[in-house]
Amino acid sequence: MALDLSQNRYAEVPYEEKERLFNEVKRDMRFDEYLYGCYECGICVAACPSARFYDFSPRKIAQAVAREDVELFYIFLNDSIWDCSQCFSCDRCPRQNSPGGLITVMREVAVKNGLASAQQALEGYGRIVYKIMSTGTQVSPDMLQPSAFPDWGPHVKEISDNLDLWRKALPPETLHTTETGWQVSDKTIIELYLIWHHTGVMDMIKEVDEGLFMILADVMEERLEEEGYDVTFD
């Protein structure tokens, strides 16, 4: 789908709001290392996989942000950044920019501010976030379900039918798991939950997916309480 760059697309959003979000991106500690300006040379575009597939251009994003074009920035913030595949091929930029890194920062700002576009981009992604945050491993064997990967063919069904047995037929002792990538010790999980607590990550989840936030908070609070920690994520 062609990206609509017409200036009145988000006319109902006040300029001050767009500027506030722009400034939030600029204030990020990574910003100065990710954007030094832009030659508008397009080298990043030539290397970019998403540019081949979508109406997407790391050059346009870097250029808009370098020129402090708040209106264009806001369009990209909503309609473009989620197409990036975060491969960092664009790090070959001769200006030493990291357009991919700039996009990471923009995504975080979109999430933190609960933009509708971010919520939409992350639809269907909640189970992954849940898995990562609650178990400490982000990909698990039991995710291999034919319904989730129909285009991978019948071998996914073969794996899921044999999952328990095939996991036991793995020589490393830590891999006999089905719900986590490997066996993670209880103490480690508790430490991970405490990291989420101390770094405000749950506030970000709350902005994009209230339901997911509540489930995660319940699971983690209960587990932490069992270990003697009085922690609430609200």
Binding site: E108, V111, I128
Partner: peptide, 20 residues
């Protein structure tokens, strides 16, 4: 081959930006 290890959780960083 430790059990006292979590993944890097970079999926939350690069994919969904639900980390910091």
């Amino acid at each position: 081959d430790p059990t006292d290890q979590t993944s890097c959780t970079a999926w939350n960083y690069y994919a969904s930006a639900t980390s910091n």
